[in-house]
Amino acid sequence: MSRKPPRDHVAPVQRVRLRYSKRGRLRFASHRDFQRAFERALRRAGVPMAYSAGFSPHPKISYANAAPTGTASEAEYLEIGLAEVCDPEDLRRRIDEALPPGLDIVDVVVARTSDFADRLQASCWRIELPGLSPAQAQDPLDRLLAADEVFVERLTKNGLRTFDVRAALLMAQVAPADDETSACAILTVVLRQVTPSVRPDDILAALRSVAPSPVANGWHTPPPLVTREMQGPLVEGGSADAIVVGDPLAADREADQT
């Protein structure tokens, strides 16, 4: 072989954690689409990335719990390994400018703690249900919350799976849309991160299954607009009403200041 041996990998000297959002029409990007877009943005922004070793070196990036294709998110997280120490805010601005509008870097911290993935315990989801009044949404929601178990089916990579959604549902409430002229219920749910994951569309499937007459009650088109608003550690306040999803970057920020 005349080929050179694999180059030495570039070890990270700094790890940073980024919070990013997926908004508007770019919510239709799949996680793979996002990964390609993000890695190209890093190159355009000239971010000094650390690379893995081997014949096909890859930039050091760890992605966590990507929101499903088609759902928007204000709280996606990833971690990157850098070959040079960078200022977090400068990094945030550079990557954000290199990304297309709709994919936005909203927060960056230097990693000072371990077990970041374990801190992503739950997500708060906002589900807009156009054409459905809050009253129409309330009844099935009450039935769902009253049940001990509600099973739904979903086609996964490993075939059709049946699983319970109720145990993962930590909190749910219905409110009217901000502009009260349009008939649109806003459902807010907090879902625990479990395996297999319970996603907002599973909750909607469960609501449809417990609703007495889904079609008559408006549980059909147009498709709901789903946004992940928060993702992080569960901060429990004693009662179900007080469940709060915290900031998973807070621990790094605190460690940075001490």
Binding site: R25, L26, S30, G70, G102
Partner: peptide
């Protein structure tokens, strides 16, 4: 939301 690979229809290319 009802079609395969919806990203191909939204534009937004760099």
């Amino acid at each position: 939301p009802l079609v395969q690979k919806p990203i191909q229809y939204v534009g937004g290319e760099v």
